[in-house]
């Protein structure tokens, strides 16, 4: 087969094949191109920061972060009880026992790190909340003499269980005692249904801490 001598005419407009192409230096990379690229790189990092979900594989919705996902997850029943207890405390208890649970010296005894609260069993505490307390009482070795109102008509069994759980388990206050259930409150309420006066410290001390 002889070498092809005639270059096909599709090769070039003039009928002869032009030489292989070369590169020149006719234009420079324009500055606006570099500037735009820089701006876009900046935009890209911002976009990733905003919509990348912090590179967490459990974030799927655009523009969310892990905290948003966690916020949608319902808390456990115990968490809900504590949250409910905090609300009850804020309304009914905070005024005397104070937001930090330390009470007011010489007037209202503390709940935080209290030797009445941090005991094994809530029998006495439930009675105090239900029917109130009057007369002298020694808390952490300090004498108090004041009156606490009864809450049996305002608070349901659930509410009392919640607030006592909140108080007894409040780690910020230094309390580490176990939860109280609505069933325990109900039992005490029924057992003391006939009572219409405040408890005294002496009466309470005669009652066992738990059944």
């Amino acid at each position: 087969m002889k070498p092809v001598s005639s270059i096909p005419k599709v090769a070039g407009a003039a009928g002869v094949e032009p030489p292989e192409p070369k590169t020149g230096n006719a234009i420079q990379t324009p500055m606006w191109f570099i500037a735009l690229l820089g701006i876009s790189l900046y935009w890209g990092t911002m976009y990733l920061d905003r919509n990348g979900g912090g590179y967490n594989p459990l974030v799927f919705n655009r523009g969310e972060r892990m905290a948003d996902v966690e916020a949608r997850v319902p808390k456990s029943d115990a968490d809900l009880l504590v949250a409910q207890g905090r609300k009850v405390y804020d309304i009914y208890c905070k005024a005397c026992h104070q937001p930090n649970g330390r009470g007011v010296p010489n007037q209202f005894p503390p709940l935080a790190e209290s030797d009445w609260v941090n005991v094994d069993g809530a029998n006495r505490l439930i009675r105090i909340v239900l029917h109130g307390l009057g007369g002298p009482i020694s808390v952490n070795g300090v004498e108090y003499n004041n009156v606490m109102l009864p809450w049996r008509d305002q608070l349901s069994d659930d509410d009392i269980a919640a607030v006592l759980t909140f108080v007894r388990g409040n780690k910020e206050w230094g309390n580490h005692s176990g939860p109280v259930t609505a069933a325990e409150v109900k039992k005490v309420r029924e057992a003391t249904a006939s009572r219409d006066s405040n408890w005294t410290a002496a009466e309470l001390l005669a009652i066992p801490l738990k059944d």
Partner: peptide, 11 residues
Amino acid sequence: APALGDQTNAA
């Protein structure tokens, strides 16, 4: 009181 109780149950 019942409003509080309802909530504790509902959640």
